[in-house]
Design a binder for these strands. Sequence first.
DNA 1: CAAATTCTGAAACAAATGTTTTAGATATTT
DNA 2: AAATATCTAAAACATTTGTTTCAGAATTTG
Lengths: 192, 192
Amino acid sequence: MARNVEFDEQLAVSKAMDVFWRKGYNGTTMRDLTEAMGINSSSLYNTIGDKHELFIRSIKHYTETRMKEALKQLEPIKSPIKAIEKFIQSSVYVITNEPNSCMAIKTTFEVATTDEQVQKIIKADNEFTYNLLNGLVEKAMQKGEITVSQDAAMLTDYIINHFSGWHEFFIIHKDKTRIKNMATFLIKQINQ
Amino acid sequence: MARNVEFDEQLAVSKAMDVFWRKGYNGTTMRDLTEAMGINSSSLYNTIGDKHELFIRSIKHYTETRMKEALKQLEPIKSPIKAIEKFIQSSVYVITNEPNSCMAIKTTFEVATTDEQVQKIIKADNEFTYNLLNGLVEKAMQKGEITVSQDAAMLTDYIINHFSGWHEFFIIHKDKTRIKNMATFLIKQINQ
DNA sequence: CAAATTCTGAAACAAATGTTTTAGATATTT
DNA sequence: AAATATCTAAAACATTTGTTTCAGAATTTG
């Protein structure tokens, strides 16, 4: 009966994501987006929808990609405490090597305060990280690898909580060493 | 020779700051601002300048006010370790009772990545906090009130670093208890 | 009080914004 | 290959954006 959509929707969303990631929601114009995506606005409105819908898809894409990566990276590690350390260290690596900082945190502070739909997605992402890390913390406590605290929930919050500060710090100071020193101290605290 | 400016510039900037604080730089329009400030755009351009200049004044106002408050609050406290604890606790109080989160952090993630002028102001604010807390940490170490680490610089970074995570956490979860638990743990770690 | 100066308000400005329209190109089905 | 359906591109759309203009009101000084 008819033609098919010509552009690869996943690829297009990924390109839109790059722009939103760099410029934020309000700092991005529809022309920025269509230019980066290589499509016309009529195609965009016919397939994905308006700017807001495209943004929703973009953060979803961001968080989903990140979740998959985290799972893949931690899966092969047997020791829970080693996995926790790996998780912290690779967070430091990403934070200190990503020029555009973290799209989820940027979004939290820019629009999650007022946009419920966005907030839900961000919350789900945070809960995924929480559950992933909490599983490891609980196991590490059972094995006696962690003794600083017996409150796994709190320690999970405590560990995750460092990341946005490091992102903020890196934007302001662009100093990897001081972040690495904090991470080393954190790991030492947990290992004690 | 002539008339004086009719509006109170400090008050006007303070009202503009409220809008920027809530809506961010890109989310705020000139009409939002002139409406909140109760002045005409011609008056605004004749006195303060354009939107960007008004934003600069707004964050400056924000950070300066905050610095004064911090000094006032910590001055009467004699014991360095008690002052550090007070600093952490009152941060928790502000974080969990401020519906608009922190303007400095929001600004860092929204525009400090690309706006050098803004970044300078934010950096100066962070360095002020750093110096304030670092003085206390050094004294507490000399007195033997802190023993977890002898690296005052690193521990200062480490303590300050918690705050943006708590802000992020409060936006997403609106849960005071879990933040208070993290703060209690942090204080316990320092006191050890 | 008169003159001089500068501030204010409303309107106007061009440019940019998010979105829609429309005519024609393109692919699928029969 | 013809008919049909739906996609695409360019342009147009109404609003909204940040900023400026200008006539008149207001205040200070002589």
